[in-house]
Amino acid sequence: MKEAGIALDEPVNIFISGVTLRDGLDLMLLPFGLDYVAEHGVVHVTTKVVADQKLKIEIHTNLTSPQENPEELIELITTLVEPDSWAQLGGRGVIRPYKNGLIILQTQRTHHKISQFLTALKEAE
C-alpha cells in the first residue's frame, strides 16, 4: 500500500450501524482507493489494484436444466455484471458452462455481484 501512497498508520474512523460487514468495509475503504480480500478466514485490506488481480474460481450449479442453453445466461452475466472485467473485453474474468451450471474465474467483488444477480433472476421467475 506504500506504493499507492497510503500510509499504513493513517487512522480511519467510521460510525455506522445496520449495515453488513461487507457494506461497512466498502464505506470505510473505497473512498481511500482501498479494497479487501477474504482468504482462509482472514480479511486482508489492500489496494483496489491488488484486489482486482486476485482471481478465484467459483462453481455455480443447478442454474439451467439439461435442455436449456447456458449461453443465454453467460451473455446476461457478462453484459450486465462488470462487463469490462471479462476476457472478451480485455479483462481477466472467464465464464464457461459446466454441467447444469457455470464455472467462473473472477475477483471476489465480482463473484459477489454475480451471486446477487443470480439470486435476483431466480426471484423474478
Score class of each variant (00 low, 15 high):
residue 67 Q to I: 10
residue 45 V to K: 02
residue 34 L to F: 06
residue 92 R to N: 11
residue 106 Q to F: 06
residue 67 Q to E: 13
residue 61 T to N: 12
residue 46 T to S: 07
residue 47 T to C: 04
residue 23 D to F: 03
residue 102 L to M: 02
residue 29 L to F: 07
residue 79 T to N: 13
residue 86 W to G: 00
residue 72 E to S: 05
residue 94 V to Y: 03
residue 24 G to M: 15
residue 107 T to C: 03
residue 82 E to C: 09
residue 77 I to S: 00
residue 63 L to E: 10
residue 100 N to G: 06
residue 55 L to G: 03
residue 22 R to V: 02
residue 95 I to N: 01
residue 97 P to T: 03
residue 103 I to V: 14
residue 87 A to H: 11
residue 34 L to S: 00
residue 108 Q to H: 01
residue 59 I to N: 03
residue 108 Q to I: 03
residue 63 L to A: 04
residue 102 L to A: 00
residue 53 Q to V: 03
residue 103 I to L: 05
residue 106 Q to H: 09
residue 25 L to M: 14
residue 53 Q to F: 11
residue 71 E to H: 10
residue 88 Q to D: 11
residue 80 L to Q: 15
residue 106 Q to E: 14
residue 67 Q to A: 05
residue 83 P to S: 09
residue 49 V to N: 09
residue 107 T to V: 05
residue 61 T to D: 13
residue 93 G to K: 04
residue 48 K to W: 08
residue 93 G to D: 09
residue 107 T to H: 04
residue 96 R to F: 06
residue 26 D to W: 07
residue 93 G to M: 05
residue 41 G to Y: 08
residue 54 K to V: 13
residue 24 G to I: 09
residue 96 R to W: 07
residue 75 E to G: 06
residue 94 V to W: 00
residue 54 K to I: 14
residue 36 Y to T: 03
residue 68 E to H: 10
residue 24 G to L: 14
residue 104 I to W: 01
residue 75 E to W: 11
residue 51 A to Y: 05
residue 26 D to V: 08
